[in-house]
């Protein structure tokens, strides 16, 4: 530990428990400084943990899932499904004769289920009045700060296939 503390000729107990009152001011300050330095080390560990997490996190392998037949829903119609797992509800909207969009149904604020508000052509979270754009899932209004994760769709014949989730933090 000589790199950390200066080697002392006096025994440790005398270093930590001063005999003279004047020495106590130094010991208390040194111990408080040591505590602050250990706090700094704790925050370094936190930063290193974030670094390790960002390195170890791999891009997930997305399954292919048949969501619906292309003509199964009418224009302006909606179908809900789960992707990539049964615990991830999603919503598919047919926005035009040949255009479909799908997003996660979990509001990015507190995970309430959003629904499609056809009259205003947007998604609405009924819990705290968060509104999302149908075009790209971005926040239009309300407490959510992040866009709805978008489910990428692929057209295979007459079928719509979910191929991945495109989110800011996916």
């Amino acid at each position: 530990m000589s790199w950390f503390c200066k080697p002392s000729s006096v025994p440790l107990w005398r270093d930590e428990f001063p005999v003279f009152t004047a020495g106590e001011r130094y010991v208390s300050r040194r111990q408080f400084t040591k505590f602050l330095t250990l706090t700094s080390f704790g925050m370094l560990v936190g930063n290193l943990w974030i670094l390790a997490q960002s390195w170890s996190r791999r891009a997930p392998a997305w399954p292919r899932l048949r969501v619906a037949e292309a003509d199964e829903i009418a224009v302006g119609g909606v179908k809900t499904f789960s992707y990539p797992t049964a615990a991830d509800p999603c919503i598919l909207v047919r926005t035009g004769a040949d255009s479909y969009v799908a997003y996660s149904q979990k509001c990015t604020h507190l995970s309430c289920a959003v629904y499609y508000e056809k009259a205003r052509n947007r998604f609405e979270c009924p819990c705290h009045q968060g509104f999302f754009s149908i075009a790209d899932g971005s926040v239009l209004q309300g407490p959510p700060r992040r866009a709805l994760p978008r489910v990428a769709l692929e057209r295979a014949g007459g079928q719509l296939i979910a191929i991945r989730v495109e989110a800011e933090n996916a």
Binding site: F4, C5, K6, S8, D15, Y26, V27, R29, R30, T33, K34, L36, T37, S40, F41, M43, L44, G46, N47, L48
Partner: peptide, 20 residues
Amino acid sequence: SAILFAACLALYRFVDRIDS
């Protein structure tokens, strides 16, 4: 963060040296 910790450590060593 590592640089800031190193600076804190250096200051601690400084305090320890003055103390002893």
